[in-house]
Simulated assay, not measured.
Amino acid sequence: MRVKDLKKKSSNRVDVSYLRQFGIQGFGDDNLYPQTLRNIIAASPTGSECVERYTDFIEGNGFRNVMFAEYVINRKGDTVDDIHSLICSDIAYFNGISLHVNYNIFGEICELNYIPFENCRLLEEDSNGYVSKIAVHPDWSGKKTRAGKPIRVTKESIDFIDVFNPRKEVVLSQIEAAGGIECYKGQILWISGNGKGVYPRSRADCVVTEMSTDEGLANVKYRNTRCNFLMAGMIVTKKGSSSTNIDENGNVVDTGNEDSGFSDIIYQLQGDTNAGKLLEVILNNDEEKPEFVDLSSKNYDKEFTVTESSVTERIYSAFGQTQWYTIRIGKTGFSGNIIGEVFEVYNSIVSKQQRMIERAFQKIFNDWYEVVNPSNDYSVEPLKYVRNAAVSNNSGGGI
């Protein structure tokens, strides 16, 4: 069947719209795609595990050049290694990087800072298709507070910062236009794994449904455990007297004390600490013998086994971690040699993301105000499996 003949059309994974009030391109239909994606991943046990492993392998053992990795790059005391660790997480979650650079009066880069990728939005393209600025806000949902007050998303609370262009004539003209070096906001090196000037699509995007299902499966297990595999029962007995009285005029008066059988104490029968308790329901004017009503419910956990297995496998596959999954389910043996081979395979999978990092740092430090890395080696050392606990941490890793 041809693509155009399919009745069910797939929607865009990342909606982009123009937010006129801010002059920016919305990231998702509500401009909160990265925030929503992070929450979905955090709620999925399998998704969180895969992203964490993905992050670890992208980061590897840091930059091979240790002196460069330990170089302090801003007034807060952050080192190159600190910034590297932060952007590896952004690549794993969102497939993007955002780094802020400041310049001195000579138009040379003198400071580097990390900006969370989820805080950045692209300005609308101009007539030439060029995005000139990056819009930065601490929290696009408007829920973050400072000094007890929420930081609302307004044009005044958004920083519009020039995109990265280290050419001296460009930087000096921007400094002059800003009113001097003290008013200049610097530039942002914004990189998308899906191309220049477009919002990236996360590796997790194709399995957001599976990750949401994974969260639901965890809720089912919670329900079965906390709300009783062994449900409580109910004993129905008779009551010797009526709940009504006769007043002095011979009229029937309802005392209002009739027991409906389901009082506030029913909550005491719920939960793992109350499993197996009994509920007594007293009936009025019933001559039958006491009756036990079983409230046990069916344990649905086994019926979710197939779904859980397929969901977990798809999430692992989306992150290129199929070999890790086969080890997890026991399909592949567990030994030092096997794990070492898996490390090598996964290091090759994340090499593209590591090269993205190398190119980003090389662009910045080629225009740094002093020579920081004479070797010009910005490569990241791959993560290695530690076969001996006594091996130095500089050559180690873990699973």
Rank of each mutant, 00 (worst) to 15 (best):
T209L: 09
S212D: 08
M356L: 09
Y316T: 03
G330M: 04
L189M: 03
A178N: 04
F164W: 06
S335V: 03
S335C: 07
N194T: 05
D259G: 06
S348G: 14
S98R: 03
G129M: 02
N113I: 05
L279W: 12
T55I: 07
R121E: 05
F343C: 00
G340L: 07
A218W: 08
V253S: 02
F292D: 03
E358F: 10
F262V: 09
E370R: 02
I175V: 11
L230P: 08
Y103D: 02
V311N: 00
L278G: 06
G396A: 06
T46D: 03
N165W: 09
D159Q: 14
K4Y: 15
R121V: 04
M67F: 14
F334E: 06
V3Y: 12
S157L: 12
S263L: 14
N394G: 05
G197V: 04
P200G: 04
D367R: 08
M231V: 07
F361G: 00
E303P: 03
A360C: 02
A275L: 05
Q21H: 15
Q353Y: 12
Y184V: 07
G96F: 07
G336Y: 11
F262E: 09
K352E: 15
G195D: 08
L295T: 05
F117Y: 14
V208L: 15
I265R: 15
E70S: 07
A360Q: 00
G47H: 01
S127H: 14
F319V: 01
V3A: 09
Q268K: 14
Y369N: 02
G216H: 13
L6E: 03
V306E: 13
Y222D: 06
Q174C: 05
E248W: 10
I266S: 09
W190D: 03
I188M: 00
K185F: 10
A135H: 08
M234S: 12
S11C: 06
G129Q: 01
S127F: 13
L122G: 00
G240Q: 11
E125W: 12
V372Q: 04
D367P: 00
W324H: 10
S85P: 03
T209P: 06
Q321K: 09
C120F: 08
F63C: 00
Y103T: 02
P200M: 10
S296R: 10
D5T: 01
T145L: 08
A275N: 04
E169P: 02
L230Q: 10
A390L: 15
S48F: 09
D162S: 12
K331N: 12
V14H: 05
S132T: 11
V163A: 08
E381C: 06
R121A: 05
S260H: 11
A177K: 15
A360M: 01
N219G: 05
M356V: 04
N245Y: 13
C120T: 04
K8D: 08
T326N: 11
